[in-house]
Amino acid sequence: MASELEELIGFLDDSRNEVRAMSAEIVAGLTANAEGIEKLKALQRPLVVKLFRSVGLGGDPARKALVALVNLSQDPAVVEMLLDLNVVNRVMEFIRDGAVPHVDLLTSLLANVTISERGCKDLLQIGKGSMEGLHMAVLLKKFVVGGITLCPGDADPFEHVASVLTNVTRLPEARRLLLQPGRGLLQALVSQLQSWNSLRRLGASGALKNCVMSAEEDGTLVCILEDRTVLTHMLRPINGQPPVEKEDTVRECMAEAVLVLAGTDKGRDALWEAGAPEALRKGYEDEQHPGVCVAMERTAEIFLSHSTIDSGVAPGVVGLASASAKQQQQQEQEEQPREGQQEQQPAE
């Protein structure tokens, strides 16, 4: 005899819209907390299958079914189950066809499953021959177009693609795809650093940092540097000029990416030309985040060690490096005991 939960799950793909809606509402509520998820654990596989069917049937219940799937996909074991059920292809089919209007939840589900390396590979379609990169190309196009056409404050259905980009660029295949010459994907990505949507900026900065950190190893450094406007975009969040970047993570990602580029001969030359020393000096004046400050100071030291004081842009670097050295000196002095001060001896 079926349990109440089994009966509830059975109604998720019922032919009657109102019955599906009732069932999806209850299931979504259960997946909103750990206690409810625990109750559903023994029935996770049939539950996930039924939820996908409910999504495909459309109507009001589809959104609640997707909410439940997003909640469940925070569990790595459920992610593996979803990948076994071809979740990436099914979600991308929904996105391409436009049959399911809840793109925000579909992309949020992709963000969760691409936390796993297997999920990233499925999205990149690695080993699928001519199909490789097709899903990513579709997502990137919709992501960039949305960033251009939406007004500040509008609902942004593709904002979670930014998190997907951060996730997948941990893999060299994704980094090479983004940096393919002539496709303009890198330029489209850096443009999101000026988006009004903080999620877009966070995702774009994370993906860019991933690409830069492995550029020498991947052999893609030239691809990053060939368009100098890319460096201008990367410097903007840390140059201290309005509009000031409010997200610490964005500034830290870009400061660390610039530090890595400064450590290479070609990157350092390109940064000089882009006015990086002066941009860093101005940004450093009001920067409060320790991680950003450290990256800027180390970059300034690299510039200073590869330049002369007579260089046209050296004063900015000197000012920043000197400030760093002065702070370090003050800290060391504070840690030293004052002259003539003796350790207090315990009373006999």
Rank of each mutant, 00 (worst) to 15 (best):
Val258Gly: 02
Leu271Ile: 15
Ser205Gln: 00
Pro237Lys: 03
Ala255Val: 14
His306Cys: 10
Pro243Phe: 07
Arg251Asp: 02
Val250His: 14
Asp269Glu: 15
Val292Arg: 08
Glu226Ser: 00
Val318Pro: 02
Gly283Asp: 10
Gly312Met: 02
Ile238Leu: 07
Val317Ser: 10
Val244Phe: 15
Gln192Trp: 00
Gln241Met: 06
Glu252Trp: 15
Thr299Ser: 02
Val317Trp: 11
Glu252His: 12
Lys266Val: 02
Tyr284Met: 14
His289Trp: 03
Asp218Ile: 02
Ala314Pro: 00
Val244Arg: 10
Glu217Ala: 12
Leu259Cys: 06
His306Lys: 00
Asp218Cys: 10
Ala295His: 08
Val317Ala: 14
Met234Tyr: 01
Pro242Phe: 06
Ser191Leu: 15
Gly263Asp: 12
Pro242Ala: 07
Ser195Glu: 05
Val294Asp: 04
His233Thr: 00
Met296Cys: 14
Leu202Val: 03
Glu252Ser: 15
Met254Val: 01
Ala279Leu: 11
Ser195Val: 03
Asp286Val: 09
Ala255Lys: 03
Ser305Ala: 11
Lys246Glu: 15
Val294Trp: 07
Lys282Ala: 12
Asn197Lys: 13
Gly203Ser: 05
Tyr284Lys: 00
Met296Lys: 03
Gly275Cys: 08
Lys246Pro: 04
Leu199Trp: 02
Glu256Phe: 11
Ile309Thr: 01
Arg228Ser: 09
Glu217Ile: 02
Leu202Gly: 00
Met254Arg: 13
Lys266Met: 07
Gly275Tyr: 07
Ala314Phe: 08
Leu225His: 13
Cys253Val: 00
Gln192Asp: 03
Ser214Asp: 12
Ala207Val: 00
Glu226Ala: 01
Glu247Phe: 06
Asp269Pro: 06
Gly219Tyr: 04
Arg268Asn: 09
Met254Pro: 12
Glu217Phe: 09
Leu193Ala: 09
Arg268Val: 13
Leu235Thr: 01
Arg281Ser: 08
Val313Ile: 06
Gly203Trp: 05
Ala215Glu: 09
Leu221Pro: 04
Pro242Ser: 07
Gly240Thr: 01
Glu252Val: 08
His289Asn: 10
Ala295Ile: 06
Trp272Gln: 07
Val230Asn: 07
Leu235Met: 08
Lys246Trp: 12
Leu225Glu: 05
Gly219Ala: 01
Gln194Ala: 15
Ala276Cys: 07
Glu287Pro: 00
His233Ala: 14
Ser205Gly: 00
Asp218Phe: 13
His289Arg: 12
Leu225Val: 05
Ser214Met: 06
Ser191Asn: 12
Thr264Val: 02
Met234Thr: 05
Leu271Gly: 15
Gly283Ile: 02
Gly206Ala: 05
Val260Ser: 05
Val260Cys: 12
